[in-house]
Simulated assay, not measured.
Amino acid sequence: MDFDPSPAQQAMRDALRAFLIRECPIEYVRACDEAERFPTELYEKLAAQGWLGIPIPEEYGGTGGSCTDLAIFLEEFAAHFEAGANIYYTSVVIAADALTHFGTEDQKKTLLPKLARGEIRFAFSLSEPNSGSDAASLRTKAVREGDEWVINGQKMFCSCAQVADYILLMARTDTNAPKHDGITMFLLDPKTPGVEIRQLKKLGLKPMDLNEIFLTDVRIPADRVIGAVNQGWRNVLKTLDYERCCLSAVNVGAAQSCLDKALAYTKERHQFGQAISQFQLVRAKLADMEMEIDAARLLLYRSAALVDRHIPNNKQSAIANLYSSETYVRAALDGMRLMGGWGYLMEYDMQRHFRDSKLAEIGGGTSEILRIVISREMLR
């Protein structure tokens, strides 16, 4: 298997790196983190350069990138701005994927070109106060009344809802069906009467807002359904391999940033008359970080290659997601250890990775759930 990027993919990576060095310097990343501010200016520039169109088919205004193309993009993006890459995944990739595979032709023609041009943003809302890892046990209910759906319930942990023009909302439409059936995906305008959004304070990923949503007699048109009624959960499962690749790419890029920062610090920091990179224990720690990140990267691109070949890889994508998320957490913690007291200071970037990394083991499937997925595939 050839793991080298194609000339076109390498050119894309080089162009993106040059763009991010120019338009997303570390001072900008720190300012967005400290102010807990959505990086509006950066996303406008990404849209102007066509970067938002990677996961969108060409016939709908995108560039029709492969899963591997997207993985390369997200890895590079996360190496510069991990929260920014997470926002891209949440507000662009999930919506592009859902609309491309399950949207009507009118929905695709109306929404996807606007998404590619950066004119609209999306959020995805699945979790609820009593349905986290057991996400299919959601209770938010949508009832058909004539030409409308009436939605009532409460959602939790919805990223980007504060800046979204549309929310892809999962709700139960058949209370008599088994819990994995009877769920439908809706296209919700957050400005609709009866929708209340409350922002939640969190540890990391501060430029990406996190919210709970209250829905009280929210009425939306009957055609605001994405995919078939009662098939929402089944449709989400069909694209899990693709989405896990995206999350893995973010983890790998962010972990690489931790290693790069730690390596630079150990070369500059002198103790006992020499750079601390000369000490054997420090070198061993750096070697461990390099080895784990390299392994995570290989797992990521194996899974992406399988997705591009349309080969189901539930186990392989889960392995990539699990290993890369835990690798990112270890890389951030080891980076803190190597930097000592300096890593603990807010003016240095390792503390941001330390705060941001933990969500990688929670969002998109906890480490425990992913281990269950992997073992279940092994025992089939």
Rank of each mutant, 00 (worst) to 15 (best):
A8G: 03
A11Q: 13
M12G: 07
R13Q: 14
R13P: 07
D14P: 01
R17A: 08
L20C: 03
L20T: 02
L20N: 03
R22I: 01
E23H: 08
P25E: 08
I26Y: 13
E27V: 11
E27A: 14
V29I: 11
C32H: 13
D33M: 03
D33C: 03
E34D: 15
A35E: 01
A35K: 08
E36Q: 14
E36M: 10
E36K: 02
E36H: 02
F38Q: 04
F38C: 10
P39D: 02
T40L: 10
E44Y: 07
E44W: 08
K45T: 05
K45A: 09
K45M: 00
L46Y: 00
L46M: 12
A47F: 13
A47M: 11
A47C: 15
A48L: 05
G50Q: 14
W51T: 09
W51Q: 01
G53L: 02
I54N: 09
I56L: 10
P57T: 12
E58F: 13
Y60T: 06
Y60F: 12
G61R: 07
G61F: 04
G62N: 09
G62Q: 03
G62C: 04
G64R: 08
G64A: 09
T68C: 12
D69C: 15
L70I: 14
I72S: 05
F73C: 14
F73H: 11
L74K: 00
E76V: 03
F77H: 00
A79Y: 11
H80D: 13
H80G: 11
H80P: 06
F81K: 05
E82C: 10
A83T: 13
G84S: 11
A85K: 09
A85T: 15
N86W: 10
N86S: 12
N86C: 01
I87L: 04
I87T: 12
Y88N: 01
V92W: 08
V93K: 10
A96S: 07
D97C: 07
A98P: 01
L99C: 07
L99Q: 09
L99N: 05
H101N: 15
F102K: 07
G103K: 08
T104Q: 06
E105N: 15
E105S: 03
D106R: 06
Q107V: 00
L111M: 04
L112E: 02
L112W: 00
P113I: 05
P113A: 13
A116E: 02
G118A: 11
I120W: 12
I120K: 13
F122R: 04
F124K: 14
F124P: 13
S125R: 03
S125Y: 00
L126P: 11
L126I: 14
S127Y: 06
S127R: 15
E128G: 14
E128L: 07
E128V: 12
S131E: 05
S133P: 04
S137Y: 07
L138I: 03
R139N: 09
T140S: 00
K141L: 02
V143W: 06
R144V: 06
E145R: 08
G146R: 06
G146D: 10
E148F: 05
W149R: 00
W149A: 01
V150M: 15
I151L: 04
G153E: 01
G153F: 06
Q154D: 05
